[in-house]
Design a binder for these strands. Structure first.
Lengths: 106, 106
DNA sequence: TTCTAATATGTCGCATCCGACATACAGTGA
DNA sequence: TCACTGTATGTCGGATGCGACATATTAGAA
C-alpha cells in the first residue's frame, strides 16, 4: 500500500495496519511468524526445485507426508525445529531464507 | 588441525574427524546443532551487550532465569523456538548468527 | 570470612509437538 | 467415467519442551 492510498483511507476514518498490527503481535512475535513463513516457503521451493514429492521428503526427514504438507503451510502445530529440519534435509541453509526483504513503506 | 598433522596421525593409524563425525551425525543434524550453538552464543552476546541479567531477559521473554541459563548453553531441553524467541526479544535477527565462519581445513 | 547478586543445575506437572494413520480433495491421463 | 498420484486436513497416544521452583555454584564487595 502506498502512502497516498493509506492517507486517503485514514482521511476517511479507517485505521490502516498490517496483519501483525491487527493481531496485536509484538515485534518479536512478528519476527517469529515471519521466520516460520520464510522457512515454509523455502522448504516448498527447494523441494520443488529438486523434483521431490512430499512423500519423498518425508522419507529423508524420517517423517510422514502429512507432516511435510503441514511444514509447507507453516501449520500451527509445526515447530521451528521441524521447519529447520525440513530446510536442512533439502540441503538448504540460512541463506535460503529472507529472500523477500520487508518494504520500507506500508 | 592442519593437513600435515592430520596426515601424520592417519599414517599412524588414527582416524581423524570432528565431533559431528565422531557422534555419527548427518549433515542435516550437524547443521541443526550448529544453529543451536550460534543462537545460544548470539543470545548471550546481545544480552551482555545490553547489560541485562538473565533474570531481566527472562522477564522480557515471559520466562524464568533458569530457562535463560539453559538457552545460553543450548541445553538439550531447549528448542529452536525458545532460542529464537530469546534472540528476537533482544532485538536480534538472522544477521546476528553465523558470526564465526567454518574453517576450510580441519 | 560473610553477604549478596548472578548464573547453573535438577525436577515437576502441564502443554505442545511429534510420527502415524485415515481420509478428503485436486489434478491428470485412460 | 474411473484409476492413480500428489497434496491437504483431522485426530490419536506418546514424547518432548515449557515455566516454575528449589537449590547449588560462582564471583565480587564489604
Amino acid at each position: 500500500m502506498d502512502k497516498k492510498k493509506r492517507g486517503a483511507l485514514e482521511a476517511a476514518g479507517f485505521r490502516v495496519g498490517d496483519a501483525a498490527d491487527f493481531l496485536g503481535l509484538t515485534d518479536a512475535e512478528s519476527q517469529l511468524v515471519a521466520l516460520r513463513v520464510q522457512l515454509s516457503r523455502a522448504v516448498r521451493r527447494l523441494r520443488e526445485e529438486q523434483q521431490l514429492t512430499q512423500k519423498q521428503l518425508a522419507a529423508k526427514l524420517g517423517s510422514s507426508q502429512s507432516r511435510v504438507a503441514k511444514i509447507e503451510i507453516a501449520a500451527a502445530d509445526v515447530s521451528l525445529d521441524l521447519l529447520f529440519r525440513g530446510l536442512f534435509a533439502l540441503g538448504g541453509g540460512l541463506p535460503d531464507l529472507n529472500v523477500r526483504v520487508k518494504r520500507a513503506n506500508i
